[in-house]
């Protein structure tokens, strides 16, 4: 029972990271119908920015300032990517656009390994709550994992408030529902799309920060983005709450599979779940089930 509880907390905290990366996919997918395969690499880049800001040999900022620094940098990079790479291929078939984001991912990964000081080594970001544990009853809960969960909840609330009440957030919702109608209402659709890329990259940077203490920072940490796809699909691609629920499901399933099933199942658990979901219930938990009109 104690084991189970601990596993659940570990699973939920890993699931939070998946959820945030999946949230990035979903935001971009809702707005522009583009699936961004570079989301994991954006996350990796965000972690590296945070590393640069926080490490004592470089900028040596406090942890909170490092988070802010990474988020601002990544928002700028996200917007730049949209403007330079994605906008010229607007309106091309969906898979062409997917391939271009794969290309962006390659470039980001390559650039990171080429930058002096980043390279192919594994780094660690100093965090204020390094290795503490909270013993509650018989359960030992690492503060790290609780912080990940807490920060994810905080970010989700923030995003919810933004999309619900801010003028820009409402404009983004309108754009993702119907681009043409939004355009007629005077919303600058292209600029809004660019900002969505910015927000999505910033969310990715945040996910990278949360993941940094778990897997450390290295140029291949973006591969976790491949596990966020199952999360997004399970929740129903194109649904924001779905991405979060999907991420949590994948995280918990992975944690349980790693403990109760033989070795090897942990790595494929997410993919088995997504294949089953796609076979049985292709629209996912929160997806829409409408027929395509001719």
């Amino acid at each position: 029972m104690v084991d189970l509880l601990q596993l659940l907390v570990a699973g939920v905290s890993l699931g939070c990271v998946y959820a945030l990366v999946a949230l990035g996919f979903v935001l971009i997918y809702k707005a522009t119908e583009t699936v961004n395969f570079a989301q994991g690499d954006l996350m990796m880049l965000g972690a590296f920015f945070a590393l640069t800001a926080a490490s004592p040999v470089m900028l040596n900022l406090p942890y909170w300032a490092a988070i802010l620094f990474a988020i601002v940098c990544m928002a700028a990079i996200g917007m730049l990517t949209e403007r330079v790479v994605l906008r010229p291929v607007l309106g091309q078939p969906a898979f062409t656009v997917v391939m271009i984001t794969i290309g962006v991912g390659f470039v980001l990964r390559g650039v990171v390994t080429m930058v002096p000081g980043w390279g192919t080594d594994t780094h660690q970001i100093p965090t204020p709550f390094a290795n503490d544990v909270w013993p509650i009853g018989g359960v030992v809960l690492p503060v790290q994992q609780l912080m990940v969960i807490g920060l994810t909840v905080a970010l989700c609330v923030l995003l919810y408030l933004f999309f619900r009440f801010a003028k820009l957030g409402v404009a983004m919702q309108a754009t993702s529902q119907n681009q043409l109608a939004a355009f007629y209402m005077g919303i600058p659709v292209r600029r809004v799309n660019m900002m969505i890329w910015g927000i999505s990259a910033a969310v990715a940077a945040f996910a990278g920060l949360l993941l940094a203490p778990v897997t450390f920072v290295h140029s291949n940490m973006g591969y976790i983005g491949l596990k966020a796809f199952p999360a997004a699909v399970v929740g129903g691609f194109g649904s924001v709450p779905g991405a979060i629920v999907g991420g949590l499901i994948i995280g918990v399933v992975e944690a349980l599979a790693g403990y109760y099933l033989p070795e090897g199942f942990k790595d494929v658990a997410a993919y088995v779940v997504v294949l089953v979901v796609l076979l049985v219930w292709p629209s996912g938990i929160f997806g829409e089930t409408a027929k395509k009109k001719v």
């Binding site: 271009i100 290309g103 991912g105 390659f106 470039v107 990964r109 650039v111 390994t113 080429m114 192919t120």
Partner: peptide, 22 residues
């Protein structure tokens, strides 16, 4: 000098893909 050549392949590969598609 100073730029590690390890990632060059990925960068060129990605750029070729992007430029071709555009």
């Amino acid at each position: 000098e100073g730029l590690a050549p390890t990632g060059l392949q990925a960068v060129v590969f990605g750029l070729v893909l992007i430029l071709f598609i555009i």
